[in-house]
């Protein structure tokens, strides 16, 4: 799997590059700045890009802007955005085009290599990887509204993991439930939130995220 990596700090770039290589990825480019990133994404068309939000030369959200620009050129280009802080504002912008292949995680999540690599794979496959912090904030806002408040605590747990972009089997593993039990919970959640159920994991996640953001 071909990866483009954008990170301006040498130590982090090197560490990420090594970790991805160790897990069988092919890091085709590791760049430092926003313009370099945009050029690499459009030229190399990688299977997935791992991008730091803040990049030179302006040290603002240049990584995010480059990723969004590339996705406008190449719809659905998988991008996993990393940051020292997560903002719902950025999550909305990443999700705005309604296509999958988007990830947005705190840099801390890299500490757990297995989960991080899993997230990169999910994004590369057109799926989602949303940081638990983003989901928690979304739920905090939505939980004042009646439909979300009606969910049982178990259903909430399932909803959180689902919104992070995990599959039924992954959710089952996390919560020590059978896959069919998770399926029942998701069906119930969709019923309570008045969303049309979908077998496609990806579309399901987008529907849930769109719902939660609408509540905000």
């Amino acid at each position: 799997m071909r990866v483009v990596l954008a990170e301006d700090l040498y130590l982090l770039r090197d560490g990420l590059s090594r970790m991805l290589t160790a897990h069988g990825f092919d890091v085709v480019a590791a760049v430092e700045t926003g313009p370099e990133l945009l050029a690499a994404l459009l030229e190399l068309r990688p299977d997935v890009a791992v991008v730091d939000v803040r990049l030179p030369p302006t040290q603002t959200d240049e990584g995010l802007q480059a990723a969004l620009a590339a996705r406008r050129e190449v719809p659905g280009l998988p991008v996993l955005v990393l940051s020292q802080h997560v903002e719902q504002l950025y999550a909305r912008e990443l999700l705005a085009d309604g296509t999958g292949g988007v990830g947005y995680l705190l840099k801390d999540r890299v500490f757990n290599a297995e989960q991080f690599v899993d997230a990169v794979r999910r994004v590369a496959g057109g799926g989602m990887a949303m940081d638990p912090d983003v989901i928690a904030k979304l739920l905090a806002r939505s939980s004042r509204d009646a439909p979300v408040a009606r969910l049982t605590s178990r259903e909430r747990e399932v909803l959180e993991l689902m919104a992070e972009g995990r599959s039924n089997s992954a959710i089952g593993q996390r919560l020590f439930l059978s896959e069919s039990a998770v399926g029942k919970h998701t069906a119930s959640i969709f019923g309570k939130l008045d969303l049309s159920p979908s077998d496609d994991d990806n579309r399901r996640v987008l529907a849930v995220l769109a719902y939660l953001q609408r509540q905000g």
Binding site: R54, T60, D61, Q84, E87, L89, K137, R141
Partner: peptide, 26 residues
């Protein structure tokens, strides 16, 4: 860091930082 200078303010300026604040308000 958020208490000293919020990153979103540094990255986007006042308008978007206030929008981000609004999104984080319950």
């Amino acid at each position: 860091v958020r208490g000293i200078h919020p990153p979103v303010l540094a990255e986007r300026g006042l308008a978007d930082a206030v929008r981000a604040l609004a999104l984080d308000t319950t």
